[in-house]
Write a protein that binds this DNA or RNA. Sequence first.
DNA 1: TTTTAAGTTGTAACCATTACAATTTAACAA
DNA 2: TTGTTAAATTGTAATGGTTACAACTTAAAA
Lengths: 144, 144
Amino acid sequence: METFVELLKTHNLKVTQQRLEILRYVESHLTHPTADEIFQSLTKKYPSLSKTTIYNTLETLTNAGIIQRLTICPTEHRYDFNHDMHHHFICKQCGKIFDIHFTCPNVETIEKDILKDGHRIEEVHGYFRGKCKDCLNKEGVKNG
Amino acid sequence: METFVELLKTHNLKVTQQRLEILRYVESHLTHPTADEIFQSLTKKYPSLSKTTIYNTLETLTNAGIIQRLTICPTEHRYDFNHDMHHHFICKQCGKIFDIHFTCPNVETIEKDILKDGHRIEEVHGYFRGKCKDCLNKEGVKNG
DNA sequence: TTTTAAGTTGTAACCATTACAATTTAACAA
DNA sequence: TTGTTAAATTGTAATGGTTACAACTTAAAA
Ligand SMILES: [Mn+2]
Ligand SMILES: [Mn+2]
Ligand SMILES: [Zn+2]
Ligand SMILES: [Zn+2]
C-alpha cells in the first residue's frame, strides 16, 4: 500500500485523492510552497480541485503533525513536509527559503529556562533573514 | 531634548507628533503590540490619527532599525521596541508573546555555516510555540 | 516668511484566508 | 453489493490585515 495511504490511516484521516495529491506535492517540493503554489500546480491535472480543499487539507495535515506550517513570511503561510526541528534562511529579496541543516544544541537549555517560567513548549522555530547566494551573485554582476 | 526626538533626527527622519506618540507607545508597551492595538490606544487621545500613519510609521521605524517587526504570528505583524537579538515564546491559546531572555551561543556557529553556503545574514529570529503559564493554570483549575 | 519635499489622512482596493451551505464520497455495516 | 452516514470537497461570499493612492498638511531648510 502506498506510504501516504498508510500515513493518513495511521492518523485516522480519510484517504482521498485530494489529500494524496497534496501530500505528494509537499513531499516532492522542498521549496516550502504556499497554498496557492500547490493549487496552481495541482489545478492543471485536477481542474475540479478547490482552493478551499487545499487550505482545509493543509490545516488537517498540520494539526495531525504530518507537515509543518512555517509562519515566517510576512504575507503568507508556507508548508514543510519535514516536520523535524530545523532552521531556515529566508532571502529578503527573492523570498526563497533554504533549510539550515543545523540542530541547535541549546534548545534543551532554552527549554529548561522556559519551563522554569511555567510555559509548555510544543514547537521550536528558528530562522534567519538576509540576502541569498543567488541574489548576491546577481547583484555582484550588476554592480561590477 | 527628548530622547525620541534625537533618535528620529539621528536617522534623518522628520520629527512629528505621530511618530513620537507611536514610538512612546511601542517603547512603553512590552507586549509586542499589533498596528491595530497601537491605533486603538492612540486614537482615543488623537482622534485625527490615521491607521495608515500607523502602518507607514511602523514600516519607517522598522526600516530604520529603530524597532523590530516580528513575523511569527499567523495573521498579523507584531512590533518590538527591543531590536536586540532575543527569542520569544508565543502562547497558542491566548496569543501572548513573552521575551525569552537567552542569548543563543550557537548563533555564530550557525552563521558561519550559512555564510559557507554563500548567504548573507541580516536578522536572527528564534521563537517557541506552546501553552503559556497562565493558560495552563486556568486549564488546571477547570480540569481539577 | 517662503518654499517644498516629506508626512498625514481617508477612502478604496488588494489578497490570503476563512465561513458557509450544497454536493459528493470514503468507510462501515448489513 | 448496497445502503447509510459522517466527513470531505466544492464554489461562493465574507473577513480582516495591509497597501495604493490622491488630496491635504506640515517640518524644516533657505
Ligand atoms: Mn524546511
Ligand atoms: Mn521581544
Ligand atoms: Zn534571494
Ligand atoms: Zn496563554
